[in-house]
Amino acid sequence: MLLGFKTELKLNNQQRSLLAQHAGTARHAWNWGLSLTKQILDHNKTNPDNKIKFPTAIDLHKWLVALVKSKHDWYYQVSKCAPQWALRALANAWARCFKKIAKPPRFKKKGKHDSFTLDGSIKCEHQKIKVPVIGWLKTYERLPSGYKPKSVTISQKANRWFLSFKVEVEPKSTNKIVDVVGCDLGVKSLVTLSTNVVFEGAKSYRKYEKKLSRLQYLARHKVKESNNWKKAQRQIRSLHFKIANIRKNTLHKLTTYLAKNHGKIVIEDLNVSGMMANYKLAKAVQDMGFYEFRRQLDYKTQLYGSELIIADRWFPSSKKCSNCGHIKETLSLSERTFKCELCSFECGRDLNASFNLASLAMSSIVSACGLVSADTARMKQEVNIKPTNR
């Protein structure tokens, strides 16, 4: 199983300049290739009888060497892999666009998502790595021992440089404390488990929203591209990076706990893009990171020998009574306590939804009004919830 490994680089000024030069060369090759491919597509639209074959990554690199490298000497000061991988990524981006998987690629701008990829003779030793042309680079943490990556990607974010590559990891099975658990995602609390355990979200954006708004307000009144404007932009990027890191740290701890200690994990197939369309919930939904939660849980369940079950998007987890199975016609967001009209069962809205999600993966007896499955009854007894019948 391949997993991505990413760590920050410990650089001096000379190394920073060299990395920025590599990223600039890769960006120039991408923009040149994108401009050329767009011209070819426009020509094929206007001249359907005299179409030009769409170039592959190899064709683009041959044309780059013949037409561009001879005019720009700084191409020879960096590794040949940087522009070569940039054109390969461009070809993959167009392939995804033609398959209607993604939107057409766009031109890159200096300072935004600067990155480049290198391959060849790469060597890892404890807290340093050797890459072509650049040489040895120190890291802040120990690198995987006994592993030689085929390629590495170096990227910049918030004025900090990071190294990433893929590592071969064998899945390992851990002792599961709970066989089945239902996870209900929410805005008030990030996750409510069917074991009555509630995890609060980081809500890092809400915590730093005023500070971020203040920095953005001050940046508005500075002359664009001036030194003070660039300094303000660095401060804004650093704060955005801090907010994202706090959110990711919370999600990583939560998903690791779920994957290690639970055999089957049931979550909802949420329509995140649809929830983002609601202007009243969009900020809170984005601050929780629902998509990142599912992405991390997807690969961690494979890593730790668990099973991830995705409930149908139209499954009425909140409207359904976990005690008798009665489904309400309407349930507003303001109703935080679920009350069943048939069996008088009463519990928290999110907890009731987690019970319903867990019941999808549990072997249960067919329940009627007032009767619950043996597993569900045992689970409710563990969390001290006693269903009552009319």
Rank of each mutant, 00 (worst) to 15 (best):
P83S: 07
F98L: 02
P83A: 04
N50A: 13
Y76T: 07
V65G: 00
T46Y: 02
F107Q: 14
W32F: 07
N47K: 08
W30C: 03
K80F: 00
H126N: 07
I40Q: 08
G33N: 08
K130C: 15
I52Y: 01
S121V: 10
K100G: 04
P55G: 12
Y75F: 11
D49I: 04
T56K: 15
W136S: 04
K108F: 02
W85K: 01
G33C: 07
K51L: 01
A86Q: 00
P48R: 06
V78D: 14
T37P: 00
I101H: 07
K53F: 00
P55T: 06
K103A: 14
N92E: 03
W85Y: 13
W63P: 00
K112P: 01
K110D: 01
W32Y: 05
Q39W: 11
F98Y: 12
P104N: 02
D59S: 04
L64W: 14
G33M: 05
I129R: 02
Q39P: 08
A57H: 15
K38W: 03
L64C: 07
K108P: 12
K108N: 07
V131N: 13
G33T: 13
K112C: 00
S70P: 08
S79A: 09
Q77V: 05
N50V: 05
W74G: 06
V68R: 15
Y76D: 12
D49S: 15
S70M: 12
L67H: 14
W136F: 14
R88M: 02
A57M: 09
F54I: 09
P132E: 06
P105F: 02
Y75H: 08
I122P: 04
D59H: 08
F54K: 13
T139N: 13
I40S: 15
G111R: 10
N50D: 09
L64H: 11
